[in-house]
Design a protein around this nucleic acid. Structure first.
Lengths: 339, 339
DNA sequence: GGTGGCACTCGCCACCACCGAGTGCTAATC
DNA sequence: GATTAGCACTCGGTGGTGGCGAGTGCCACC
């Protein structure tokens, strides 16, 4: 009763299917892998694996194909992480190191990841809510409008324009700027309510309307999760999959175009695990992604996850390689943000 | 010798082909359009049109399909602009009016345009180089780093960090900020060199290093055309085309993923015409886009074109409708930026 | 438990014939 | 001279058929 061999068979099936994209049969399996048994034996093992739901036959007389459950077992227990080559690591490091600002870092990361994995890559901008405030800048525009620029520790910059009911005194703005930065800088959203109220109270009653408006904008901007952004690259990689399974790609692209869907996905996956999380086929809550798998990891300065990156492709993907790439890019990204 | 009818025939072919996506034959043509002649006559006209290069036969015994040249004639002389319905106009106005900041405006525009046209929509961010400077804000970060925030009249905000060789005096930053804004605000890149030099010269020699560094960053940021950004939506609309002509979509998506290509394209088209410009098939310089057409228009405050929007799809597209939509969105966009 | 043998299934492909849409041409007609 | 009816011809698409071969499940045997 060699249970081990059955797992070997499953591993071999996944590996072969991923590379050839064709249902794999018993003979091919013994030829390509050193299994040291006859095809007939493999067939028995396959029958057991199929009974258990790890593999399936597309048609009666075809080879076997892994099911989502089969991929899951493969990812959890059978695949060993493929270390990146030195050249790949160097490429990542130098490519990311050249970035000039946060936009550029994110942009480069997403391109890089899509090239490394040959999948669609997704990078979420560092979440405002979770990053600490570095600085608030106020710029009086005209009479009753103030531009509020919010800069976070991760280098993200957001601007909002506040419209006031009435003009403000000229010296209010510099004072408000100073007070805001003294009280609020270095804090994150959750720690912000008290200091902001204190700032408001420090002003004369007649000025509080304007002050409160600005304070509210600062808090709301950090709180706004809808403003979260993701960028994407490598959509064309999906078209390869479409040639194999025509029609499956459409819903995937549509899902990807809905930033909301993507963000929910990444957020959900944040809860799955500390390290790299993998969602396979039907494990995705979004129906359009029932044929897709996603490999995601968090990144951020100081070991705090502040946003996530991921690679998305057909369930039939090179999990070991993808996991390695996603993890590597996430780490370099964290390192850069920390530096 | 009714040349007019031949043009009618061409128009009818384009219209039918665009809606049915099938080569159109002489009989179908007389049935669907009130041409008042027999199929045989149409066949003669078709022979002439084919001879002149406006239409072609996919196979010997098939109907006719417009060539790029045929589409070009159609666009230039045969199609009348389809006015948008009141409902569509209202939808555009309200949808764009809800935007909260420039990012949001651009984002909404691109989604809107892709939905209106059922094509891939592209929106270029207002060019920094062409927009006037509204305000420069300086934020001392630590010892030797200053955050420079540049705000343009179109509401775009760019930030850069300047690393200085040595620490600066505490009161230098406010003074520099004030002088920069007095001299440079309201100017555009081309008018900026002189005022910036004057600002530099207003400072003591010992301080000029830091001042010049900041001034350079301001100018370089505005000059950096590589930093131009475009956003895209509706990629999935292309897949419809792929079902009809498998394989033509891959290069298009790849071209679209290269922002540089897109930007060059939009810039080239800026020169084509003042109003809506159309590039059809091989007219596109980029090879990957030989099967695609692009409809683009400029937008910007005060009648100045400051960036462009466009819709991209298969050459077989509804030009009249697409042109109307692109123009409409461009106008609303301009109005919003001006307001 | 593993293996060799064997009958069976069924998707894929090549082949073929047929249908029909569409054409070009010619001769007759307005 | 333009238009039309008629007609022979082309050729892509469809559907049916048969053979091939990969792959299976099962059974008897080691």
């Amino acid at each position: 009763m060699s249970d081990d061999r059955r797992l070997d068979v499953l591993r071999a099936i996944v590996e072969d299917y991923v590379t050839t994209n064709e249902p794999v049969g018993s003979r091919a399996l013994v030829e390509r892998h050193a299994l040291d048994v006859s095809p007939a034996t493999i067939r028995n093992d396959m029958a057991v694996l199929e009974e258990a739901g790890y593999i399936a036959q597309p048609h009666t007389s075809a080879g076997r194909v892994p099911t989502d459950k089969g991929y899951r077992l493969f990812v959890d227990r059978l695949s060993s992480v493929k270390p990146l080559s030195a050249a790949e690591r160097r490429a990542i490091a130098t490519f990311l190191a050249d970035a000039v600002d946060l936009d550029d870092v994110v942009d480069r990361s997403v391109r890089l990841l899509s090239q490394l994995t040959h999948q669609v890559a997704v990078v979420q901008y560092p979440s405002l809510a979770r990053s600490a405030l570095r600085h608030v800048e106020l710029v009086p525009l005209e009479d009753r409008r103030i531009l509020v620029v919010i800069i976070t520790e991760t280098g993200r910059v957001e601007q909002r324009i506040v419209e006031l009911d009435e003009p403000v005194a000229e010296d209010l703005v510099p004072e408000l700027r100073a007070r805001l930065n003294v009280s609020a800088a270095g804090r994150r959203l959750s720690e912000l309510d008290v200091p902001l109220s204190q700032v408001v109270e420090a002003f004369a009653v007649g000025e509080r309307g304007a002050v409160r408006a600005v304070a509210d904008v600062v808090r709301d901007t950090l709180a706004e999760t809808t403003e979260e952004r993701v960028v994407m690259a490598g959509t064309s990689n999906l078209l390869r999959a479409d040639r194999d399974f025509p029609g499956t790609v459409r819903p995937v692209i549509e899902a990807l175009e809905e930033q909301v869907v993507l963000l929910r996905l990444l957020t959900e996956m944040a809860e799955d695990t500390v390290d790299v999380a993998v969602r396979i086929g039907h494990e995705n809550t979004h129906v359009g992604l029932a044929e897709a798998s996603i490999v995601a990891a968090g990144y951020g300065a100081d070991g705090e996850t502040v946003a996530r990156i991921g690679a998305l492709g057909p369930t039939r993907m090179d999990y070991a390689g993808t996991i390695a790439s996603v993890r590597a890019v996430a780490r370099y990204l964290s390192r850069i943000l920390a530096g």
